[in-house]
Amino acid sequence: MSENITRRNALKNLAGMVGGLLAMPGGRACKAAVQNGLASSHAPAGYDPFQHKWLMALDVDRCIGCGLCVEACCAENAVPEGHWRTWIERYVITKPKAGSGETRGETMVDSPDAGKEGFPPLLVPREDILKSFFVPKLCNLCEKSPCTQVCPVGATFEAPDGAVLVDKNYCIGCGFCVQACPYGCRFFNPETHTADKCSLCYHRITRGLKPACVEACPSEARIFGDLKNPVPDDPLQRFIASNKVEELKKFLGTGPRVLYAGLDEEVR
């Protein structure tokens, strides 16, 4: 090889090395320019998602079906007309027909406008009702969420603090997640043309506020708390300790972080 060291070759090698050294910062600058064009970044809010683990508990016996939570959610998050991030279902279970040999009759569920304006009077006469109650629903904040598993672009994810969120800048609006959610908690937002869902009021909980639905609930039917930072005499821990809490559709193994107390067997 020694006979190959000519002036020409030495200069060529030197130029290559200098070019390579120049290309490295150039490449970094190009990368930064491309990425800044793709996504605008915001200053960090001083909130560490690893230091929190949020959980929501719902007390069916406390829900009075006023719909103030739905109204607050829509106002807080500017949810487009006709779509809901949370809603209230009214269950009516009738008495069994005489001689039918059943323990209960028909089950009817309604949720007019998600219960935002309250509920109209029942059409079933009072003496025919075996049981009637309200069930508030929202995103179940699954730990193994089917909706994030089907996203082809990784635009929806489970944050380390338990919130399941949608990255609107990367969502392509294919709607796979809307179909994948077994609880029907997602919808297609016609204004942003992306998937939309309960964000657990992420802009509120990162500021130390409660989600809007919890704030607006008059009867403490919605209990919200942080498992990693319990407050003295924590309402959430007290609630979980003193009630038999259940998950919706437990057989699916989605691991919801939304727990219910006082659920009837008919609720799904």
């Binding site: 990425q35 970044s41 809010a45 807080e76 009021c201 992420y202 802009h203 506020l209 809007a212």
Partner: peptide, 30 residues
């Protein structure tokens, strides 16, 4: 060139998305 700079900061997603979602202003004061 195309991987977002904050990707992988908190998990398998764009870390800045958390701040973008949290940037919304609350409507209810608490």
């Amino acid at each position: 060139f195309l991987t977002p700079p904050s990707f992988g900061q908190y998990g398998h997603f764009r870390g800045n998305a958390l701040q973008e979602i949290a940037a919304r202003q609350p409507y209810y004061a608490g």
